[in-house]
């Protein structure tokens, strides 16, 4: 057993430095399960990324959409698939956040997967209408502190990254806002435009309205400032915590390390693809490169933070 592991580790190490000559894998097309409906940001980016990764794998990657039940339908299918490297999938934060909602899942959203690579973060930000009196996040928080429960905000739903980040903001600043959950990100923009909520915390649905000067972006939750909105501060700069909106490539648990490394190399090389980067830019998403092992650590720490937040709001 030990010997086997050693050999595996050795092959993996070799694979890291030189692509092995005995390239049996992949000898047939690879299926990539996207647990979202066609056309969404994950679908669009994953398709372009897969196209780019094909060049390094020498086999086509077929994208199949398995949407529904907050990605858990597609995730369950992926968890059940054979760990042979011919079925891989995308991971979004939603996939592990639903577990915190108390939903019964047929799989463990973190432990039942092997982590291949990371590819980016969705840009999430706080937007208000242009004629709103709040010019900065600080002013918004100050008002929320002085007038608890007065301001209403919209997000894509309960327990989403967007919602939890505002929960963290309220907890750390002492401000109190009222959450009006919307039916998905797309519904948040009209809720703000129509004045039905005072601000929204959303993925890039506000982008066209920032451009048309109908909305103003107060802060983004990202590790660094966005290239598209260099003037908008991040939550971190302002001293607030934020959750990340993870986009990663995963496979079923038990994927042989040798195959995992091959996939990791291909998908990480694909990050430099022009078309992929253009698509990410268009969706205001940030390209992030992380090795597979670090992806799991990131997901675990994000999960722990989200759990802590949810528990603190329940009290």
């Amino acid at each position: 057993m030990k010997l086997k592991r050693l050999i595996l580790a050795l092959t993996a190490a070799c694979a890291l430095f030189a692509q092995p000559a005995n390239a049996q894998y992949p000898d047939k097309p690879i299926t990539l399960i996207v647990p979202w409906a066609p056309g969404g940001s994950t679908d669009q980016t994953a398709r372009v990324l897969a196209k780019a990764a094909e060049n390094y794998l020498g086999q086509p990657i077929i994208v199949v959409n398995r949407p529904g039940a907050s990605t858990t339908i597609g995730m369950a299918e992926l968890a059940k698939a054979a760990p042979d490297g011919y079925t891989i999938g995308t991971l979004s934060s939603t996939g592990y956040l639903v577990k915190l909602q108390g939903r019964q899942l047929s799989f463990d959203p973190i432990e039942d997967f092997s982590y291949i690579s990371y590819y980016g973060d969705n840009l999430i930000g706080i937007a208000v209408l242009t004629d709103s009196p709040y010019k900065t996040l600080k002013e918004l928080v100050a008002f929320g502190k002085a007038n608890p429960g007065k301001l209403k905000y919209g997000t894509a739903g309960v327990g989403t990254t967007q919602h939890l980040t505002i929960e963290a903001l309220q907890r750390d600043s002492g401000a109190k806002f009222v959450h009006v959950p919307q039916q998905g990100s797309a519904a948040s923009a009209p809720a703000l435009l129509g004045g039905h909520v005072d601000f929204i915390m959303e993925t890039s649905v506000w982008a066209p309205f920032i451009e048309s000067k109908q909305m103003r972006l107060l802060a983004v939750s990202a590790t660094k400032r966005s290239d598209v909105y260099p003037d908008v501060p991040t939550f971190g700069e302002l001293g607030f915590k934020s959750l990340r909106s993870v986009q990663a490539i995963i496979a079923p648990k038990g994927l042989p390390e040798e195959i995992r490394v091959k996939l990791e190399i291909a998908f990480r090389k694909a990050l430099s693809d022009k078309a992929f980067q253009a698509t990410m830019q268009k969706l205001a998403m940030q390209v992030v490169d992380l090795p597979g092992a670090d992806v799991k650590k990131l997901v675990e720490s994000e999960y722990a933070l989200a759990k802590e937040l949810i528990e603190s709001t329940k009290k």
Partner: peptide, 9 residues
Amino acid sequence: LIQNVQPGP
């Protein structure tokens, strides 16, 4: 969006 057209204002 895929065609690089941003529907909106």
